[in-house]
Amino acid sequence: MLGEHVLFLDGEALVIDKPAGLAVDPPRAGGISLENHLASLTFGFRRWPVAVHRLDRDTSGCLLLSRNPKAHARFQQAFERGEVSKRYVAILDGVPEGGSGTIDLPLGKVSTAEAGWRMTRDPRGKAARTDWRVLATHDGRALVEFRPATGRTHQIRVHALEGLGAPVTGDPVYGAKHDGGMMLHAIALSLPRAGKADIAAEAPWPARFAALGFAAG
């Protein structure tokens, strides 16, 4: 049940702290996804909430859901216009040079029969930009804050590897698996609304980050 994971709730919006390992969309191979929990997130409404955006299965943190179709359309438009502020934290297998900056690296999808599909640098791909800064270092790893200006598939994961030269710790596609899982967390999300208070949520610090020596700053 995800009722205890609610970070924000009002008549048109719901933000939950999505656990790592929970897929937003039903997996093709079957298994549990967010859909299996929606009935427990109605909070008095008959209508089930609907996810407005996506987080990768192994990414935890702030996920926005709409509680009615009109709100859903407005929220999607806000994402398309770049009005939604998202902040992520990640642990990287390595320490990027420079301490902070902006990664401007267009992305496209590649696919092989052996390895399946993945995203990579592609000059003809979709524009993707991410601001980043190192928050801390420990045992050859870096805790990095990412603020994506665009919302491409696997954007932060590919920008970490190909833009900074250090994959997200535990990334099963772009790095190496880790017993603690993938160290990527959507820690904050905010969305302005005309005539109403902003939707604003911040997720708790993940225990798996603390286990690698990175406590909340």
Results as ranks from 00 to 15, higher is better:
R81L: 06
T120P: 05
P167F: 05
A128N: 09
P96W: 00
H138Y: 06
E162P: 13
W117N: 07
F45Y: 14
S85L: 10
E97P: 00
S66R: 10
G82I: 02
L41W: 12
I91V: 15
G94K: 01
Y88Q: 06
V50Q: 11
P123E: 14
G44A: 15
E80C: 07
R46L: 13
R81T: 04
K86S: 02
H72S: 11
T137Q: 05
V110I: 13
E83M: 14
F75E: 00
E80G: 06
I103G: 04
T42N: 03
T42V: 11
R118S: 11
T137S: 02
H53A: 04
H53I: 00
L65N: 13
Q155Y: 04
P148N: 01
L92H: 05
S100G: 11
R47W: 03
H53T: 01
P148C: 09
C62V: 06
L65H: 11
D104L: 03
I103S: 06
H72C: 13
A39I: 12
P167Y: 01
Q76G: 12
A149L: 15
L107M: 09
H72Q: 15
K109Q: 15
S85V: 13
D122R: 07
A39M: 11
V173Q: 03
G101P: 12
R81V: 00
S100M: 13
S100Y: 12
F146N: 00
S100A: 15
R57D: 02
T59K: 01
A142Q: 11
R57I: 00
T102Y: 07
T59E: 03
G108D: 14
S111A: 15
E162W: 12
R133K: 10
G82A: 04
K109T: 14
R141L: 00
H159D: 10
P148D: 04
S66K: 07
T137A: 02
Q155V: 03
S85D: 14
H53Q: 07
G99C: 07
A136H: 13
V89F: 07
I91D: 01
P49F: 12
N68I: 03
E162G: 08
D104M: 02
A78M: 02
A73E: 11
A115H: 13
